[in-house]
């Protein structure tokens, strides 16, 4: 484990120093890497660790983004505070969905359908709410300043997004080694067996969805103040949920590093391929390459890339070393 911590410390040091050597554009790519890694990690808490598959996480992203932005625009509340309110709002909604799903024992695809349905209800509701900009969307005022979470360069966004990633890693690692985390994994592996051993399935699933939706919503505030435009279709639709879950699936579900590895692979690939092919006037090819890579990842690394790395590294570190 020491080796992993040393490696992570070095990586963190490199990432902290990186802005000295790269342009705003590259920093922008890293911001997206961190953002999607963080969102993936938030989803990972529920689906990767505890098991229930959610395809409606964009709902929590949207709730976080809209609540903190509306608080800032209408009541002058700084997004630094608004993000926690958004997080609580999303956690309440997450708990309500969880209550319906877990109380009535919805499993597998039925729980997936429930999350999709609530995601769509959320999207359609916002689409019809005038105070939230309905179909026109919410245009965020640009007021540069730390208090407003608005910055001119990408540097502050870079460090904030990096902070989000570190925060999520700490949360997940703390969960992993805690009693809760063990229960989560037990639920994921065999719910009936866990229950027969006295694990309160309902309670721990509720805890998982609460943490997951809360964390996702915090990311929503970051998105709103980085992109400056919120529309139900661009923050609350199904494709946003898919975008969120792609990284942990490719990187490795139920592992702390999976979402990070997935995001480090997929995000720059998509950016670089788009930039390269767009410059050459061959738009659309990058989407094909992205699709091919996803197929390849599923074919060759069915357990995620992290599992593959683990397999290679373990014999080198020795069987006894835990990663």
């Amino acid at each position: 484990m020491k080796i992993i911590y040393s490696f992570l410390s070095i990586l963190l040091l490199i990432l902290l120093l990186l802005p000295n050597f790269v342009s705003d554009y590259i920093l922008g790519i890293f911001v997206l890497i961190f953002f999607y890694a963080y969102m993936g990690q938030s989803w990972n808490v529920l689906t990767g660790y505890a098991g229930p598959i959610s395809l409606g996480h964009s709902l929590y992203l949207g709730i976080g983004a809209y609540i903190s932005t509306k608080l800032a625009m209408s009541f002058g509340v700084t997004p630094w505070i608004g993000m926690w309110v958004g997080g609580l709002g999303a956690a309440l909604v997450g708990l309500a969905i969880g209550f319906l799903g877990f109380r009535f024992g919805l499993k597998g695809v039925y729980f997936v359908l429930l999350t999709i349905a609530f995601g769509e209800i959320g999207r359609l509701t916002v689409l019809h709410l005038k105070p939230l900009g309905h179909m026109m969307g919410l245009f965020v005022d640009f007021k540069p300043g730390f208090v407003n979470f608005h910055f001119r360069g990408n540097l502050p966004y870079y460090y904030i997004a990096l902070g989000f990633v570190v925060f999520s890693l700490i949360v997940v690692r703390a969960l992993e080694v805690s009693k809760w985390g063990r229960y989560f994994v037990a639920l994921r592996e065999d719910e009936d067996a866990a229950e027969s051993l006295g694990v309160n399935v309902f309670k721990y699933k509720m805890i998982a969805i609460g943490i997951s939706s809360f964390m996702t919503a915090l990311g929503g505030t970051f998105y709103a103040n980085y992109i400056f435009y919120l529309h139900p279709t661009s923050v609350m639709s199904m494709w946003v949920s898919i975008e969120i879950i792609m990284r942990p699936i490719i990187g490795g579900l139920g592992t702390p590093f999976g979402p990070l590895i997935g995001s480090f692979l997929l995000t720059p690939l998509s950016e670089i391929a788009r930039s390269y092919f767009t410059k050459a006037g061959l738009e659309g090819i990058h989407i094909v390459i992205y699709g091919l890579l996803l197929i390849a990842a599923v074919l060759f690394f069915p357990g995620g890339i992290f599992a593959f790395i683990k397999k290679i590294v373990k014999p080198i570190l020795g069987e006894s070393k835990e990663i």
């Binding site: 342009s23 554009y25 997206l32 990408n154 980085y226 992109i227 435009y229 529309h231 767009t278």
Partner: peptide, 22 residues
């Protein structure tokens, strides 16, 4: 003319704008 493709998505539009500015 430098070319950028927004894919009709806001985050991509931002990223592409950043790239062409660079």
């Amino acid at each position: 003319l430098l070319l950028g493709d927004s894919e009709a998505k806001e985050d991509v539009a931002r990223s592409e704008a950043e790239r062409v500015i660079k």
